[in-house]
């Protein structure tokens, strides 16, 4: 029973609701080439940013794209920006992926993986939620259907703050 409780707690904490447990840290700085120009965290001051790290070879990443499109569409007016950072070593692999799986959000490229290092990624895909003041307030590893509801809830809550 204790095990089950522990498990439930684990799931709840991990499925990134903006928990009080998540320490508030300033978003690591970066400057990355994107499809249209460059992106830096400073550009998104005053917005809620959902940073998603992905790669063409990662199966759950592919699964997450349609949902990310929906999320961007739904919360655009409330100030949500989705920034998907691609970590493919070779950009053409990412381009090929994007031809097949459309992304209606900002896609930036970091073949060297420097941002992945500074965000201390624990798995693929990984997502980070950044509040309007530029603080990382939530993170989530992986993409599973069962996580979708709480992920969206986290985004919606933060947008209302």
């Amino acid at each position: 029973m204790k095990q089950i409780l522990k498990y439930i707690t684990f799931v709840v904490v991990c499925a990134f609701s903006i928990s009080a447990l998540a320490e508030k840290t300033k978003v690591p700085d970066f400057k990355l080439p994107a499809i249209n120009g460059e992106v830096t965290p400073a550009q998104f001051k005053g917005k809620v940013v959902y940073v998603d790290f992905w790669a063409s070879w990662c199966k759950p990443c592919k699964k997450s794209f349609p949902w990310l499109n929906q999320l961007q569409q739904k919360y655009k007016d409330q100030g949500l920006v989705i920034l998907a950072i691609n970590l493919d070593k070779e950009k053409h692999l990412a381009d090929r992926f994007l031809e097949k799986v459309p992304a209606n959000f900002i896609v930036a490229f970091d073949p060297a993986g420097d941002t992945a290092t500074s965000f201390k990624l624990k798995g693929m895909p990984s997502s980070y939620l950044i509040d309007r003041a530029g603080y990382v307030v939530g993170k989530h590893t992986g993409f599973r259907e069962k996580d979708i509801a709480s992920l969206e809830q986290g985004v919606a809550k933060l947008l209302q703050q």
Binding site: A55, W57, C58, D88, L93, G113, A116, L121, M124
Partner: peptide, 11 residues
């Protein structure tokens, strides 16, 4: 090996 460096291993 970092999570984002598993491109080849994922093949």
């Amino acid at each position: 090996v970092q999570p984002w460096e598993k491109d080849l291993l994922a093949r």
